[in-house]
Amino acid sequence: MSEDASARATRARELRHEALGLEPERLLTMYRQMVLARAIDRRMWVLNRQGKAPFVISGQGHEAAQVGAAAALRPGVDWLCPYYRDLAFCLALGLTPLDFMLSVFARRDDPSSGGRQMPSHFSLPKAHIATTSSTVATQVIHAVGIAYAARARGLDEVAVTCVGEGSTSKGDWHEGLNFAGVHRLPFICIVQDNDYAISVPHRLQMGVDSVAARAAGYGMAGVTVDGGDLLAVYEATREAVEKGRSGRGPTLIVAKVARFTSHSSDDDQRRYRPPEELEAMLRRDPVERFRTYLQQASLLSDQDDERIQQECTSEVDRAVQIAEAAEPPDASDIYRHVFSESGPG
């Protein structure tokens, strides 16, 4: 590339975030959220290998899609019905590393469940992150109901749900999107398509390249974006949010992402993915990609990057230290919260 062409390309990149109205400071916040999510995620695998975390499930490779989408929402106002890979999404909406580590260690003060649920079953009422189960796609319908209630109550909240592409085969996914389409609800479904549902590949999951093709069947807009491109996901989500908020109906967004880790700590993806595929995938690192963007736009110096990485690492260190030492719940607490403790009324 000639020097001129290189300068033009850089300028074009700068224009992308400028055209989206994103200030450098916001870009750095998003970058930091991705780095933090990655640091937490990596640490939980270490804790798993150390025998301190019986089960972990990961979002590595999904960070750009999640942080980009979260940036288009108003934390604590708009809603997220998440799925188990949404660590970066939840961090961006207000979950702290300590909150998360308390769930990894199943501690009493884990805000998602008090140690009852496996980690990554996110829930944070004040951030409007709804509680979820492990049965996939059930939360899609909850987001639809949340959106219906928001409209009924005259609130301008938008409800977002995330699923993997495997969940789109479930009846609940269909029933939810159909309902949202009927009522043109302020609802957004983000499918984080990483090509695998545990070991089952995309080609055995659906007969289309992108599940966004189904959107027309629900009377809603459907878009496919490069989920490794934070700004592209931000742009698509922002448009969907504006559409929902202004009464123009729901949107289905498919973000093509990479699943860096095995499905969970109980899986080994080398058993069903060829080495060359894994190698190629690892070159699609969304965190590195955004770092390169920021560096080429002269928004992030090596020094700044080093500082951000270090800050995130120490934040995770601190969270692990506090969470590990935190009180477990009492075993006798299993009898609590089956029903309301204040009784009817």
């Binding site: 019905c81 319908i141 639809v144």
Partner: peptide
């Protein structure tokens, strides 16, 4: 719509939102 899981799921979601 004629979809029982949606009837209950939408009810759950609407209960979560007041």
């Amino acid at each position: 719509p004629l979809a029982e899981s949606a009837i209950v799921g939408v009810a759950v979601g609407s209960a979560l939102n007041g």
